[in-house]
């Protein structure tokens, strides 16, 4: 399985049919572990590693920069 097929599978996995979620059903999703980055400091450290080793950055947030590491 090449990278492109993995990418296609990942894209398909995020396309389930939408259903209306009532306001009183938001509690499960409101937990901190359901946030896009549940540990922002840790995510920041790992983004820093990848920014300094790879040509891509950002996605979740802004695209990186601000240091001499790349």
């Amino acid at each position: 399985m090449n990278f492109r097929s993995i990418a296609v599978l990942a894209a398909l996995s995020v396309l389930p049919g939408c259903v209306a979620v009532k306001p009183w059903q938001h509690d499960i999703l409101a937990r901190p572990d359901m946030q896009p980055a549940s540990n922002p400091l840790q995510a920041g450290l790992e983004d820093h590693i990848y920014f300094s080793k790879e040509a891509s950055s950002g996605g979740r947030g802004f695209g990186g920069g601000g240091c001499g590491c790349n």
Partner: peptide
């Protein structure tokens, strides 16, 4: 590197939380 820092990510987390009826991760 710090443009990907926690405050910026917090901003997106906070946006999602506001969607979910809470105000921020913290």
């Amino acid at each position: 590197m710090q443009l990907n820092g926690p405050q910026r990510r917090n901003r997106f987390a906070a946006a999602a939380l506001s969607l979910l009826g809470a105000s921020s991760a913290a």
